[in-house]
């Protein structure tokens, strides 16, 4: 190995190194020094096995997933009846001090003294590059390898709330109730509905105006796919500048 070659290599920087990678690296170090993998404390013999622990660094985002769950919000249809919120609370045991989805309100100035009310439903965007997953020190929050849903493993959560600070969408809350005491969030009703064969999340099913369309972005026949790819429609995401590549798409129809 030539030092001069190494010097010419680009610094990866901290952006490309998620917590999980750091943990793997530390494990690798412990493996080299023989604390793990059956070596004695001073041995350096088990490096080959230790290297196996390291694994290749995965690309920044491996997508699409299959199924690639996402949601389209037809914003102009939302009338803030909040049936989605009620359904979510009922389905997912959401405490009164938190929310998994909520409705934001803004007033658009149309000029000539006219104003327009706009209701904007928000929820976890299940980003392809989730900032919350990147910062979690215990891997308690993770991106599901098959369907891409950003999940919580509450047993691992230490309640540091770093993920809450990292989330660009304010989609997480700390469930401080006794026996839980962990961060919680929307998981597209995976445990309560989708894994049980339901085709819609509780919020999408409760919406009287079909403002929320849930589906699989890789399923060409799904309504969601057709909406997102309708050539005459403008589709946008919230806070694209964060580079999180969200999976909740907004449009007016």
């Amino acid at each position: 190995m030539k030092i001069s070659n190494l010097e010419r290599q680009k610094n990866e920087g901290p952006d490309a190194l998620p917590s999980e990678e750091r943990r793997k690296f530390l494990k690798f170090g412990l493996g080299v020094t023989g604390v793990f993998l059956g070596g004695s404390v001073l041995s350096l013999t088990s490096t080959r096995n230790a290297l196996g622990e390291m694994g290749p660094v995965p690309p920044a985002g491996k997508f699409p997933y299959e199924p690639h769950y996402s949601m389209v919000i037809r914003q102009n249809r939302c009338i803030d009846c909040e049936r989605c919120k009620e359904a979510c609370v009922r389905t997912n045991n959401v405490p009164s001090f938190g929310y998994r989805t909520t409705i934001l309100e803004l007033e658009k100035d149309l000029g000539r003294g006219e104003k327009e009310r706009v209701f904007m439903p928000v929820l976890c965007n299940h980003c392809n590059r989730p900032p919350c997953v990147r910062v979690c020190p215990t891997s308690a929050t993770y991106k599901d390898k098959t369907n891409g849903i950003v999940m919580m493993n509450q047993k691992k959560c230490i309640g540091c709330k770093t993920c809450m600070a990292a989330c660009p969408y304010n989609a997480r809350y700390f469930d401080e109730r006794k026996g839980i005491r962990a961060v919680d969030k929307c998981n597209f009703c995976f445990d309560t509905r989708i894994s049980k064969g339901e085709s819609k999340t509780a919020c999408a099913a409760a919406c009287p105006a079909q403002a929320r369309i849930f589906g699989d972005l890789t399923d060409y026949s799904s309504e969601l796919y057709k909406l997102v790819h309708a050539p005459e429609k403008v589709v946008w995401v919230l806070r694209p500048e964060t580079g999180a590549l969200p999976n909740v798409f907004y449009m007016n129809d």
Binding site: N76, R77, I79, D80, C81, E82, I103, E105, E116, R117, V118, F119, A209
Partner: peptide, 9 residues
Amino acid sequence: CTVCHIGVK
């Protein structure tokens, strides 16, 4: 819609 539908808020 939102001219008349003022919502829960």
